[in-house]
Design a binder for these strands. Structure first.
Lengths: 331, 331
DNA sequence: TTGTACGCGTTATCAC
DNA sequence: GTGATAACGCGTACAA
């Protein structure tokens, strides 16, 4: 790796001049510029991002962090792609970390990113009171929340209208004549989950249906809990005729729980999931879902972050994207 | 962000002493150590990874790069998880990049990683002559190849026995009585693809079946090409009775191409895919596949990289993992 | 045992 | 226009 020193020596100028050539500062006469540029090429010089970052205040590291629960969850993979593509378009690199919904891991990675002097961070907070994230924001480091919001702190945020999505999903089931609709929800500390639950309750209430405790089960967003809870619900003496499942993995789990029971979907039990699934068309049956524009969530979050890096004091913005009910064969 | 200076001032010692405390150098008397540790805590000091990296030779950045074609491909997502988990276990952070099988993107990211002074890089080379990667290796930066190998350069490598996997897959079809077996392969510049193709040909040859050009189609590993090529094959006057599809996305594409034709799988056309699919059990039908131990590939690659960072001159190792034929309902 | 001072590769502020 | 030079935060050889 050639350094400024070596280039300067070769071009018989000072490192300052080389630096000026690199940074397009116009205060350099064309002749020396040419000499320097040749030396640059000959040595295959690449500036050290590390040295540059050490020297400069911030906002020019061209490096941002992304912390997500699990890259193997297609919803987050799609967000990650959105973030990454937007970052690449602006020549930013990305440090990606999986937190597994584990606050300790999240905290570890937040510290790494601070220590790396990233220009900013995109993440869905672990909970709406996420202490580590709140503390981080106090330091002034640009943070954009995606998917989930924080309770007491106002940040840039790109979210999806979860309430509206849940409302549409449950209304769709009600329109099909279902009245005993089971709910499989996730962790209640997560804002999105509470919104979806609220949508479920309000949709029922609007039709004068009282919610039933025994039809509402809380899991942990993972596939296995979807399977277990679906089985619990279907084991009831009076089982639900339809299920509203609050995320993608639990939806797959629920379907996996239903199959061995030889129940027909949707005739015996209908299913609506939150989050679309890759290759939904190849699933059995292709599930009706509330599709979130995850790629857009990621892309716009990165755009917001880039703007905040340029203008750190700009007031926080909330972008709310609309989900879309995709009706397939499970309802 | 507190610096060594500030901590030193607070503890009324020199920065050298603080640094010694941090780096567990034992040449510091317990009393001052305590004072320093308190100052450290009070200020919430975190060392700057950037400054540390600039100062030190290499191997201590605790940062590695991972370049994969596409994080939304579950095969690579699984590799990424394996790499990330192993990295986290050793307190390494990860820069993750998607190359989209695009050499320019790959080159850009390789340069970023060099400029970031990463300790090493894990990647599947774009092709077996991947110029940018070969050049990179010449610089001495530790590189571990996963999945795909390089033709002329010996590196640490974690691969899967693609030939064996393809052999088993096609033998399975032959055992079921199929003779007209279509092949949907990917880019031929990729070593894994050639191995799979060779397995297909050898399996046929072992039963005295001559390969037929019209039954062999080459795509680009993406879903759409699987759909298109499956349709091409099924449109033949004498269509194949079975398909061997060389990666996961093309398998989904092939299934999607078959469904609208109202053909029954496996009665009308059987399908074996390379790579397992998430939620395979929920697919219609659950496909028979050659499962690659992708998580292990990633995990072991990271282990190899860690070893090479410690001992840069150790001779390159090749780890070859065995794939597994998972028989489900599509054959 | 502790402190001083240098250098890692940049950028930016001065003089010249 | 160009060239020294001072930071940025850290680790360490060397001096005390």
């Amino acid at each position: 790796m050639a350094t400024l020193q070596e280039v300067a020596a070769r071009a018989r100028v000072s490192i300052a001049t080389v630096s000026r050539v690199l940074n397009k500062s116009d205060k350099v006469v064309p002749e020396t510029r040419l000499t320097v540029e040749q030396a640059l090429r000959e040595l295959g010089y690449r500036p050290s991002r590390v040295a540059r970052r050490l020297r400069m205040n911030s906002g020019r590291a061209h490096l941002v962090g992304l912390i997500i629960p699990d890259i193997q969850n297609p919803f987050y993979a799609e967000i990650a792609r959105g973030v990454e593509d937007a970052a690449y378009a602006s020549e930013y690199a990305l440090i990606l970390c999986n937190s597994d919904e584990n606050p300790d891991k999240e905290r570890f990675y937040l510290e790494v990113m601070q220590a790396e002097s990233v220009d900013g961070i995109v993440l869905p907070p672990f909970s709406d009171t996420d202490f580590a994230v709140v503390e981080l924001i106090k330091t002034g480091l640009p943070v954009v929340c995606v998917d989930r919001s924080l309770a007491k702190v106002k940040t840039d945020l790109v979210e999806v209208d979860n309430y509206q999505g849940a409302l549409e999903a449950v209304n769709h089931l009600l329109d099909k004549g279902h009245e005993r609709i089971g709910l499989i929800e996730g962790r209640s500390q997560v804002s999105t989950n509470r919104e979806r639950r609220r949508g479920y309750l309000d949709a029922l209430a609007a039709r004068g249906i009282a919610p039933r405790k025994e039809l509402m089960r809380a899991g942990d967003f993972k596939q296995e809990s979807g399977r277990v809870l679906a089985n619990e619900l279907l084991d009831l003496r009076k089982p639900p005729t339809a299920l509203f499942v609050c995320n993608n993995l639990m939806t797959v789990g629920a379907l996996a729980g239903i199959h061995p029971r030889r129940l027909r979907v949707p005739e015996d039990v209908a299913v609506v999931g939150f989050d679309d699934l890759p290759w939904a068309e190849a699933l059995d049956p292709p599930p009706t879902v509330v599709r979130q524009p995850a790629y857009e969530v990621g892309r716009q979050a990165m755009e917001l972050l880039l703007k905040r890096i340029v203008e750190p004091t700009r007031p926080p913005v909330t972008v709310r994207l609309r989900p879309e009910l995709v009706v397939r064969k499970s309802t």
